[in-house]
């Protein structure tokens, strides 16, 4: 479990990093390293070069501006999780990050890195897919924005090109009348979930007017399920029985693995989606009651 040989570069500017990315074949960007380094140690990835962006100034932006949370490529999960201003305007980020691994991993791992890594079992790509937003990327060819819906192409495959560097993620703040929840079941605290669901529910006049969900661990990638047909019109304060299981069961495509079989994961996704809708509706009511508009 030692990595194969690689060249190591630690550029001091974005321009320098982009030049290296353009010039070097088989280079990978290293940020927090919480996914890449294990892949290297298990020799599942053998990049010719690593470009460590940890010394580039300006990638650590974290602020709420223009209706968005701006998250720089250098911002760790834990820094984002602890930011009260962010949690106030987009609580789902903290709720999801509470479930991301353990403090030692969150202290190094970056949220942008996780989104670009596009692990279908990871929380943050599902959150971004649900909330929308954009990822700003750059290369020597120029800059562009990738819409959240286009960001993940498949398991472990994002739209970010090999010569591109992700600079910043922009996630919209929660709209008035919405509430959110992230519910998952993992075998051990901090493990990848057997199944998990991110939900946003819109409430108007005490009634649900919209509900959407993304899932992790059940083969749906970052596709968004519209649960509105199942719950629209329901009293948001009276959701003891929520039947979303049928809608979820028809949407997810889980597989057997060593931790759970597909039938269980399908069942679990339905149960968790119901809980998430209830929690998100309660959140919407609470935020409305607290005057968050």
């Amino acid at each position: 479990m030692k990595p194969p040989p690689f060249a190591y570069h630690a550029p001091r500017s974005v321009e320098e990093a982009l030049t290296l990315l353009a010039a070097l074949d088989g280079a990978k960007v290293l940020a927090g390293g919480q996914s890449l380094v294990p892949l290297l140690n298990m020799r599942l990835a053998e990049p010719a070069a690593l470009i460590d962006i940890g010394r580039i100034p300006g990638l650590d932006v974290l602020e709420v501006a223009d209706g968005h949370v701006r998250i720089g490529a250098g911002v760790t999960h834990e820094r984002l999780r602890r930011d009260d201003a962010v949690a106030a305007v987009q609580p789902l980020l903290r709720r999801a990050l509470d479930l991301v691994a353990h403090p030692v991993i969150r202290n190094r791992g970056t949220t942008v890195g996780s989104v670009v890594h596009a692990d279908p079992a990871a929380e943050m790509p599902a959150v971004v897919a649900l909330l929308g937003g954009t990822l700003e990327v750059a290369s020597v060819r120029g800059r562009r924005s990738i819409e959240a819906a286009d960001l993940v192409r498949g398991p472990l495959e994002s739209d970010v090109a090999p010569d591109e560097l992700a600079l910043e993620l922009r996630v919209p703040v929660a709209a008035p009348g919405t509430g959110s929840a992230f519910v998952e079941l993992s075998r051990r605290h901090g493990d990848y979930a057997l199944a998990g669901v991110a939900t946003e529910v819109a409430v108007d006049g005490g009634r649900i007017v919209g509900a959407r969900a993304t899932f992790i661990g059940v083969g749906t990638g970052t596709a968004v399920l519209d649960l509105s047909p199942a719950v629209a019109g329901r009293d948001a304060a009276d959701l003891d029985v929520v039947d979303v299981a049928a809608a979820v069961a028809g949407f997810v495509e889980p597989q057997d693995d060593v931790h759970a079989d597909a039938a269980y994961r399908r069942h679990l996704a339905g149960v968790l989606a119901g809980r998430a809708v209830r929690a998100a509706a309660a959140d919407a009511l609470a935020r409305a009651g607290a005057g968050v508009r």
């Binding site: 079941l185 075998r187 057997l194 931790h259 759970a260 269980y264 679990l268």
Partner: peptide
């Protein structure tokens, strides 16, 4: 006994 196996037994 994992949750998955227990679920299968109960079903």
């Amino acid at each position: 006994l994992s949750p998955s196996r227990l679920h299968a037994l109960r079903v």
